[in-house]
Simulated scan of single mutants.
Amino acid sequence: MITAAVAGASGYAGAEIVRLLLAHPDVEVGALTASGNAGVRLGELAPHLQPVADRVLEPTSVQTLAGHDVVFVALPHGHSATIAEQLPDDVTVIDCGADFRLDDEQDWTDYYDTPFAGTWPYGLPELVRADGGKHRDDLVGARRIAVPGCYPTAVSLALAPGLAAGVTEPEDVVVVAASGTSGAGRSSKPHLIGAEVMGAMSPYGVGGGHRHTPEIRRNLTRAAGRASTVSFTPTLAPMPRGILATTTSRAVAGVDAATVRAAWERAYADEPCVHLLPEGQWPHTGSVLGSNLVHIQVTLDEHSGRVIAIAAEDNLTKGTAGAAVQSMNLALGFPETSGLPMTGVAP
């Protein structure tokens, strides 16, 4: 039995981590911290977490977090590095922010306003690379792990098999993805209130402005083995959870539909958390709600010469907290899916 602390437990991602840890047979939930909500009983903010509802959120400090085997950091971008550098090397630190995802300092400074903190092993075990390996290999025994962004998880898993197999081109990749409002966090924002969101969709971060763009581009470049270019347009959908990512990429000349599908089948045949759906069945967010699953479908549009790959995920589970727990399992030698919900909730 190990102990795990969660920094930022009052936010959507932090609370989701707590939910998953409560179901993990090898984890005891330790300190739960917050910033503005320190001193508040957790049940006032997250009554669904009944086993720990009477816990009072502690201030987020190194002193509070130290002494645990694992520390999950679910704080706004730019806040993780200071905490991480003060925690002992033998503590497994899993960061759900962006601080350690990127490996190019220029990419960081182009999109963020804090100093570049470096790069940690990337917590997307299923992501295939050009050499045929997967990021899972980097997570075994790791003591510092960067959890992917929610959009990059869906987009990268949708596209990587074709790039790694050489059946799609890494240039001219186009992505349009819809996300639920929880992806923007729990802070009050006028454009996220019910009257603005219900019955409406809207784009944001258009023209390469979304912070997940360099992360997606980096992942696709690793899968292809050469530079990728991507046009990424995120949209806000009137739902609390979920991401549906529709991606298209140019098919390599002469590739047929059977060859395309075979690339995705090989990539995900043995993956417990990524499912290629039967032909003709398309992903939708309701099927993966509350689960650590990604549903994917792929087809070749012979008229345009483009491969269409669509992925659905729950942005709070597989898109954040589930990836964090899955990475912890790999780092510490637990069964990879331990504590992770492997079925969705419907309707």
Rank of each mutant, 00 (worst) to 15 (best):
A130R: 04
D69K: 00
G67D: 10
S187W: 06
A177V: 00
S182E: 13
V167N: 04
F116P: 09
L163Y: 06
G123C: 05
G149V: 01
A142T: 12
G180H: 07
S187M: 12
V91C: 10
D104A: 13
T92D: 01
W108T: 13
D90S: 13
R101T: 10
H135E: 13
A142E: 07
T82G: 14
A142K: 10
A130Y: 05
E85C: 09
H191F: 15
A66H: 08
E171L: 13
F72H: 04
P125Q: 01
G123I: 03
G67H: 09
D172M: 03
V173C: 08
S179T: 14
G185S: 06
L157Y: 03
P88T: 11
D90H: 15
A184I: 02
V70D: 00
L139W: 04
A117H: 10
S182D: 14
T168A: 15
R144P: 09
D107A: 15
L157T: 12
R143D: 04
D107S: 14
L159I: 14
R144F: 05
V176C: 01
K189P: 02
F100K: 06
A195L: 09
G149E: 01
A98L: 08
Q86E: 13
P125G: 03
E169Y: 00
S187V: 12
I83A: 07
A165Q: 04
E169V: 11
A74N: 08
D110I: 00
H191E: 15
E126I: 00
A177I: 00
V91F: 02
V140T: 11
A195W: 04
D110P: 01
D69A: 08
T181Q: 08
